[in-house]
Design a protein around this nucleic acid. Structure first.
Length: 373
DNA sequence: ATTGCTTAAGGG
């Protein structure tokens, strides 16, 4: 009965992040080439890719802002991060960076495992509600759909006690984070419990490194969700970080769905205020229990369950460390030597400057070496 | 364009 909309049909011009790349470091150019050769899923940009290499450096004034003095947030044109950006960063920071530079650079095998995982998650979501496709054309519409989902989900959680794919967003230690909580439900004791489902290709228990990353991920969800229901995620903060235009008229399909849901909103700003009120006045508790369930993809056998001991200080400390990279206060790091086994399954192991340098970014040590490609 | 731009998570 509880119908939930889901956005689709993203902007058709989302393809081009093409400029800028000309003045990347040499190793980035190498990566781009590798991407062309490899079986990349991402379709190329509209026209000028790397070929448009200008020969007139002096005629490009904004190139004075060299990429290496831009923070990663600026370099990747990011206004906010995904929760999973930070949890991937917890696994290997450099892998996360390569992932941002070369999106969609995965082996077919790995992509397969991810697809299977995504399908299992989708199937579980569909157990609880239908999905409706709403055509959208801009980010205001995309966020409006997210907000409409929240507005219908909160009463559903309070009446039915269970919910899947709940969107969360908010500032944590200075960065704005966006994510989706797998599952929320009230326990018999009336406490709110978050469950994160992790599916696994092989029927083995996760390693400690895996658990650590997943615990961090769900801890982030709790930080953000709690802040939302405590009124700490204000409309002003949301608008400031996302740069949404609260007065931009909503698209016709979004307006239609808002009406169908019984929400009379004239603008995105109205919708944001409504979400804020709903979050803070619905008697939602903070999350009491954090749980991770590992199941085998093929057989759905439960491989293990983790109850996470939430340590707010520890989580915030980690976030501060990770954001130091994003703000450009420090260079990215690869894994410690004792975790070098992670490189074995990494898509970027062949090009990784950390691995080549044996624990330091070789680009910072030997800037000349790469010329001899 | 003297610019702006994002579905999050998916698993190891």
């Amino acid at each position: 009965m509880a119908e939930t909309g889901e956005e689709e049909m993203m902007s058709a011009e989302a393809s081009g992040f093409s400029d800028m790349s000309d003045s990347e470091f040499l190793e980035i150019l190498d990566l781009e080439e590798a991407n062309e050769l490899g079986a990349s899923l991402s379709k190329p940009g509209p026209s000028s890719e790397l070929s448009r290499k200008d020969d007139k450096p002096i005629s490009l004034p904004n190139w004075k802002r060299r990429l290496d003095i831009l923070s990663p947030m600026e370099r990747f044109h990011l206004k906010y991060l995904y929760v999973t950006d930070l949890s991937t960063q917890n696994w290997c920071e450099l892998q996360m960076v390569y992932g941002k530079e070369l999106p969609g650079f995965l082996t077919p095998e790995k992509a397969d495992v991810l697809d299977t995982g995504a399908s299992i998650h989708l199937a579980r979501e569909l157990e609880l509600h239908d999905l409706v496709t709403i055509p959208i054309t801009n980010k205001e519409d995309a966020w409006a759909v997210k907000f409409l989902n929240i507005l219908t989900m909160i009463p559903t959680l309070q009446s039915e006690g269970c919910l899947r794919e709940f969107p969360v967003f908010g500032e944590v230690e200075g960065v704005f984070l966006v994510g989706v909580i797998d599952e929320l439900q009230y326990t018999a004791k009336g406490e709110l419990e978050l469950t994160e489902l992790k599916t696994r290709k092989r029927p083995l228990l996760p390693l400690d490194a895996q658990k650590k990353k997943d615990c961090f991920q769900v801890s982030l969800y709790k930080c953000i969700f709690d802040a939302m229901v405590q009124g700490k995620v204000t409309p002003a903060s949301l608008i400031h970080h996302t740069k949404l235009c609260p007065d931009k008229p909503l698209g016709p399909s979004v307006q239609r769905h808002a009406q169908q849901g019984g929400f009379s909103v004239k603008s995105l700003g109205d919708l944001i205020e409504l979400v804020f009120l709903s979050l803070t006045l619905s008697d939602l508790p903070v999350i009491d229990t954090l749980k991770i369930e590992y199941i085998h993809q093929e057989t759905a056998t439960v491989l293990g369950t983790e109850i996470v001991a939430f340590d707010e200080k520890e989580v915030r400390g980690k976030v501060q460390h990770y954001t130091a990279y994003w703000m450009g206060h420090r260079e990215p790091q690869g894994v410690d030597m004792e975790e070098a086994w992670k490189c074995r399954t990494c898509s970027y192991t062949d090009i990784c400057e950390w691995k080549k340098g044996g624990g330091v970014l070789s680009s910072t040590l030997e800037p000349q070496a790469k010329k001899a490609k």
